[in-house]
Deep mutational scan, measured.
Amino acid sequence: MMAYMNPGPHYSVNALALSGPSVDLMHQAVPYPSAPRKQRRERTTFTRSQLEELEALFAKTQYPDVYAREEVALKINLPESRVQVWFKNRRAKCRQQRQQQKQQQQPPGGQAKARPAKRKAGTSPRPSTDVCPDPLGISDSYSPPLPGPSGSPTTAVATVSIWSPASESPLPEAQRAGLVASGPSLTSAPYAMTYAPASAFCSSPSAYGSPSSYFSGLDPYLSPMVPQLGGPALSPLSGPSVGPSLAQSPTSLSGQSYGAYSPVDSLEFKDPTGTWKFTYNPMDPLDYKDQSAWKFQIL
């Protein structure tokens, strides 16, 4: 009977010793046993002879290597770790002494450095960015050149030099007046198309007034536009458009034309069986010896 009264063996659950049927240790109110408190290391007290050895090595170098620390530790009968900690504390003490010396050398008012006064946003004049500046400075420094007289040679050079070769001289006033084509001369031969040399188009003023001019072949195509416009036809070669000034309004060009419109200028042929003959000019830059190549039959 006494065997049943004795408590059973101890069981360990999660490293906790349980005594038989008792489960009081598993209750929430019972805390787990805490780790033992780490003991504080005792402070090391250095003797005068030990301090002399350490100070002598510190005077040589503030960062001794492990071999120098072990050698000193053997002399003063201390572990190497204590020597390492002593050098660490000695360097910190040396830095603190240097900072105190710097503070003593500075004057009393030198510690508080005078800061520059901050400028207020409204006091300083700042350039306004509302208006974009002129990058080319046209509004201040540029002045347009004065327009020359209508009959000045410089204007003629600016007008005619675009179309004339570089080897030719500017046309005088008398020749510029001949550039304007007359109405009857352009409409006299509506079906004849003559190819003149390129030099005649640039230099010869008579080429624009003769039936064999460069633009005589364009007349049949330009004249039928007159009834559609409801007024006189516009002429690209009329009046002052080739003269001194090219800047004319469309209203000033509306009254200039080749001449009176005639039914002869239409595109319809009077004789459907007729042929169109292209007159060959020996001055043509295209060297075609066979003139029969310039004739064709309209079917």
Rank of each mutant, 00 (worst) to 15 (best):
P224G: 12
S49V: 09
Q105P: 03
F201I: 05
R119K: 06
Q105I: 03
A166P: 01
Q105A: 07
G209P: 02
A121C: 03
S241H: 08
E52P: 15
T187G: 07
R37N: 08
K75G: 12
P165V: 12
P64A: 13
A198E: 01
I298H: 00
P144E: 00
R95M: 13
P165I: 14
M283W: 09
V23N: 02
M26E: 01
V72K: 15
F278P: 00
C94E: 04
T194W: 12
G243Q: 06
L54I: 15
L54R: 13
Y261F: 09
F215S: 01
V180Y: 04
Q100F: 15
T47N: 01
Q175I: 13
P197S: 06
Q100N: 07
S169H: 02
D140K: 06
G259Y: 11
P190K: 10
L25G: 00
L51S: 14
T61S: 08
W294R: 00
G137H: 07
F215H: 00
T187E: 03
T45I: 10
M26G: 06
P272F: 12
P108C: 08
A293D: 02
V131T: 06
A260W: 13
A181R: 11
H10A: 05
A3Q: 01
A198L: 14
P144S: 02
Q96S: 04
A3G: 00
P149S: 07
S204T: 05
S185M: 15
M5I: 12
P125E: 03
T251D: 02
E53S: 09
S206P: 07
V83F: 15
A121F: 06
D24Y: 13
Y11S: 00
S22G: 07
F215M: 02
P79I: 15
A56W: 10
G151M: 07
L186F: 07
Q50P: 11
S212Y: 12
G151T: 03
P147F: 08
S292I: 14
W294I: 01
R119N: 03
A73V: 15
E55I: 10
Q297K: 05
Q84F: 12
F215K: 05
R176T: 03
M225W: 11
A59E: 07
S212K: 10
E80C: 07
D219R: 15
A181L: 09
V13S: 05
E42V: 07
P240E: 02
G8F: 13
P205G: 10
Q106A: 06
V30F: 09
L136M: 09
G231P: 05
C202R: 11
L51W: 13
V72N: 15
Q84G: 01
S213V: 13
A196V: 15
T275R: 11
S49R: 08
T251I: 13
R119M: 04
A35M: 10
S49Y: 09
K38A: 12
Q103D: 05
P33G: 07
F58D: 15
P190E: 04
S213F: 14
